[in-house]
């Protein structure tokens, strides 16, 4: 318990540090939101517009330390401010609108690729040197080496444009279906999410598989595995309970960390498939110097990563008796 408490205290300090960095880093970029917006308009704006935009976007000319204290004060009150990219939408609304798309798409893809990758890792090692291992391992290494952007574009072009199996853009059929928890909407969203999710799974599955495979190989040379086999336990039992259970630890840590980063979205997927989500909102916020939105997004990411880390810590206590008893 003291171990957990100490970790929690550490996480609180880390949270403050990340909140401060979240504030500082966007403000270090040159220019301000109004300048960025004039730039974005590509000359389709009168030269005099800059001043008007500074006012309408609420560009602050206060010294940075005053803005910092205002930011902290607002944060304590749960006020993340107004997004200038999505003016006049509050940052909390932008997050509420974009995060569910990201969490479902990236979260589900992560779980799928983790589960399939880990299982494949176990299986190919158990029959290592057999046909499956000689084909699957290089095949997935090859897949992971394809640049994600290219892979996604090819799949979209072939399955979306050429064959017409999947829609070309968007998160659901916004033309005919209203957003809400109806069967129609969920089916439509699933149809629109399939191809983006597939590309993410293809792009990340080999990492899980190879990680598991390497850990399994090390574990299989341990004496207790030999002992288990000598006891005459079934192959299945030895594979799952003796080898895989111990080999999965690094993958579980990695998985917990990945869950934290789910909320940062997948910018490339969102760009290629014009899929709604937090990744593209981040890109927009960076390009428009949308300080409030960037701070809001970074805050969510920091909290998610910290919580995921905490969960990994706790999980380790449960999974690994050595951590629990405090003995090396």
């Amino acid at each position: 318990m003291r171990h957990i408490l100490r970790r929690i205290l550490f996480y609180l300090v880390a949270l403050w540090a990340s909140v401060t960095l979240n504030f500082l880093i966007p403000h270090l970029a040159p220019g301000n939101p109004a300048q960025a917006l004039v730039g974005k308009m590509h000359g389709r704006v009168a030269p005099q517009a800059l001043h008007a935009l500074e006012i309408s976007l609420g560009v602050s000319h206060d010294p940075l330390y005053i803005q910092y204290f205002q930011y902290i004060l607002n944060l304590i009150h749960g006020n993340l401010g107004i997004s200038v990219t999505y003016m006049p939408t509050p940052v909390t609304d932008v997050l509420a609108q974009e995060l569910p798309w990201t969490i479902v798409l990236v979260g589900v893809s992560l779980v799928i690729s983790f589960v399939i990758g880990t299982i494949l890792g176990i299986v190919v090692v158990w029959w290592r040197g057999a046909l499956m291992d000689t084909i699957l391992s290089p095949f997935f290494t090859f897949l992971s080496a394809i640049p994600y952007f290219w892979l996604a574009l090819i799949l979209l072009y072939y399955f979306g444009a050429q064959l017409g199996w999947f829609p070309l853009h968007g998160g659901y059929d916004a033309d005919n279906i209203d957003q809400g928890w109806t069967i129609d909407f969920i089916l439509s969203a699933a149809q629109y999410a399939f191809l983006p999710a597939l590309t993410i799974v293809i792009g990340s599955i080999s990492g899980w598989m190879l990680g598991m495979r390497n850990a399994m190989i090390t574990t299989l040379s341990e004496d207790y595995v030999l002992m288990a086999e000598a006891k005459g336990l079934t192959t299945w039992r030895v594979m799952t309970s003796y080898a895989a259970r111990n080999a999965i630890l690094p993958n579980v840590t990695q998985f917990a960390l990945s869950i934290g980063f789910v909320v940062s979205g997948s910018i490339l997927t969102e760009v290629v498939f014009s899929y709604p989500g937090i990744g593209y909102a981040t890109l927009q916020a960076v390009q428009s110097l949308d300080y409030s939105l960037l701070q809001g997004i970074f805050l969510v990411i920091s909290i998610a990563v910290l919580v995921a880390n905490l969960m990994a810590d706790v999980l380790y206590v449960i999974l690994d008796p050595r951590v629990r008893t405090g003995k090396g």
Partner: peptide, 16 residues
């Protein structure tokens, strides 16, 4: 445009 999701903003004088 190609700058992602829209805010609900029809104000012709607004930058967004």
């Amino acid at each position: 445009n190609q700058s992602g999701d829209y805010p609900k903003n029809y104000n012709p004088y607004s930058g967004s």
